[in-house]
Measured scan of single mutants.
Amino acid sequence: MATDAALRRLLRLHRTEIAVAVDSAFPLLHALADHDVVPEDKFQETLHLKEKEGCPQAFHALLSWLLTQDSTAILDFWRVLFKDYNLERYGRLQPILDSFPKDVDLSQPRKGRKPPAVPKALVPPPRLPTKRKASEEARAAAPAALTPRGTASPGSQLKAKPPKKPESSAEQQRLPLGNGIQTMSASVQRAVAMSSGDVPGARGAVEGILIQQVFESGGSKKCIQVGGEFYTPSKFEDSGSGKNKARSSSGPKPLVRAKGAQGAAPGGGEARLGQQGSVPAPLALPSDPQLHQKNEDECAVCRDGGELICCDGCPRAFHLACLSPPLREIPSGTWRCSSCLQATVQEVQPRAEEPRPQEPPVETPLPPGLRSAGEEVRGPPGEPLAGMDTTLVYKHLPAPPSAAPLPGLDSSALHPLLCVGPEGQQNLAPGARCGVCGDGTDVLRCTHCAAAFHWRCHFPAGTSRPGTGLRCRSCSGDVTPAPVEGVLAPSPARLAPGPAKDDTASHEPALH
C-alpha cells in the first residue's frame, strides 16, 4: 500500500513536468492505449483535445483523470512512461527518471493478473537440437547421386540401376557391380574402391570401400567397409609401409569409374585409389579445392560414357583410347591431361624469361682521411668538412668512354686558381681547403699541381719545410723540376691526363 501511495503522490508531483515534456501524442498516448491504461473513449478524447488546445494541455488533463483511477493503472502508467522508446522521444523525461526514488519498484506484477504457477513436473524439458533432418536429407541425396545420367557406350558392359529405396527402410541396399565389389548404403556420403591386398588381414578377392557413415545421432565417422563389417581407420595404420605414394595433400579420389555407378572395369580391371599401398590413418579432407572437384561422367573428346580416367587438374575425364597418344593402361600417381600440362608450361616460361635485376654498384670503404676530388669540390665554400675520421664509401662506377685530351690552356685561363699578391707571391683563392683534413686555415699551394695542403698533414714525420718551391706529398717525388717562383700557373702540358701512381689516385688537379 505504501508503494501505491508513493506512486500516486509522484504522479501528482510530476504531472506538469510530464505534460510539458510530452510534445507529441505518439508514441506515449498510443502505448498507453495498447497496454489498456487508457480506454478507447479517453484516447479519442485526448486526441481531440490535443487538436484543440495543444499537446501539453491534453496530457495534463489525461494525467488528472489518471489520478482518479486505481493503483494498478497508475503503476502501469509509470512502466509505459519509462520505456526506452519514450525516453528517446521525450528527452525531458530523463530528469524525472533520475529523480525517481530508488525504493519504488516498478517491476512488480499487476494485482489480480498474476499467472498461475505451473508445477515443475509438468514443464517439459527442453529438446536438444538434433541433426536428424540433415541425416534424412543426406539419405535422400545419396540415391540421386547414384542414378545414371545416360546410357553407357556399346563397348562398356557395366550397366546398373540402383533400385529405389524407401527412406523408412534401415537395411542396406547393395548393387552387384562384379568382381566382388559392393556399394555402400544410402547413408554413405562418398565411396572409393580399395584393393584388398592393401588391407592387412583381408582374405580372398574381397575389396573394401572407404566410406563416411552418417549415424542417426547426427555425428559422422569415417571407416572402411569390408564385406558386411565396418573398420575404423586406426586398424589399417601401417607405419612400416615404404610404398606409400601419396598425392599432394591428398584424400582418396576415384580416378576410374563407370558411368552411372562406381566400380571396377569389366574384364577384371581393378579400380585404383589416388594413392597406392596401405590406407593412410588420417582421412581428413584435403585443403586443395581441386581434389574436391567432381569430374564429368562423359569423355571430353567423344562425349560418351564408359570407363573413364579423370584428370587431377580439371573436371574433365577421358577414354584411354581417346587420348593423344592413347594409353594402354592407367598410369600410377597423379595424372593430368594435356591442357593442364600446357597451362603449367605456359606459367613457367614467362618466369624464366623475366630479366634479372641489375646488381647495385659495389661499394668499397675508403680509409679515414681520404676523399675523392669530387667530394672536395662539392663541399660548401668557406666551411670545414665535419666528421673527417668517419669511413667514407667510394662507389665503383662504370668507366666513362675515352675522351680526347684536354686542349692547351693559356696562363690567363688559370687566373682564378691563384691570386698574385703585391710581391708576386701566389695566394690561395677563397674557399681553398686541405685535401686531407678539410680545413682551409693557413693552407699552402703546391707549386707543381696548384693543390691546397697543410705541410703537417702531408709530411707528418716532421720534415723541414723548404723556403721556396713548396710541393705536396703527391708531387714531391716527381722528377720534373719545380717552376720558378712567381709564375702564375704550371705549363698547360702538365694538365694533360697521364698515368698516375697508386698513392696519388685520389689527388687529381682540382679547380677552386
Rank of each mutant, 00 (worst) to 15 (best):
T3V: 04
R9V: 02
R9Q: 12
L11R: 02
L11A: 00
T16W: 00
E17W: 00
E17Y: 00
I18A: 00
A19K: 08
V20N: 01
V20P: 02
A21C: 06
A21P: 02
V22C: 01
V22I: 15
F26C: 01
L28N: 00
L29T: 01
H30K: 06
L32A: 00
D36P: 02
V37W: 00
E40C: 00
E45M: 00
H48S: 00
L49W: 01
E53K: 15
F59E: 05
H60A: 01
A61E: 05
A61N: 05
S64W: 04
L67Q: 00
Q69T: 01
S71Y: 15
I74Q: 02
D76L: 05
F77G: 01
R79M: 00
L81H: 00
K83L: 07
N86K: 01
R89F: 15
F100D: 01
F100H: 06
P101M: 02
K102F: 14
L106D: 02
P109M: 15
R110Q: 03
K111I: 14
P115T: 05
P116M: 11
P116Y: 12
P116C: 14
A117H: 13
L122S: 14
L122G: 14
P126Y: 01
R132K: 02
A134G: 01
E137V: 08
A140N: 06
A140R: 12
A140H: 14
A145D: 05
T151E: 12
A152L: 12
S153H: 14
S153K: 03
Q157E: 13
K159W: 14
K159D: 06
P162I: 15
P163D: 01
P166G: 15
S168L: 07
Q172A: 06
Q172I: 15
Q173S: 14
R174P: 06
P176W: 11
L177K: 11
G178C: 13
I181S: 08
Q182M: 04
T183W: 06
A186P: 08
Q189L: 03
R190H: 08
A191V: 02
M194C: 05
D198G: 11
V199C: 07
G201T: 09
G204H: 14
V206I: 13
I209V: 06
I209M: 07
I211R: 02
Q212A: 01
G219E: 06
K221E: 11
K222E: 09
C223N: 04
Q225G: 05
V226D: 06
G227A: 04
F230Q: 06
T232R: 12
S234G: 12
K235A: 05
E237Q: 10
S239I: 06
S241P: 14
S241H: 05
K245S: 03
A246E: 05
R247S: 09
S250H: 09
K253I: 09
G260D: 07
A261L: 07
Q262S: 08
Q262D: 12
A264K: 06
A264D: 01
A265W: 05
E270G: 11
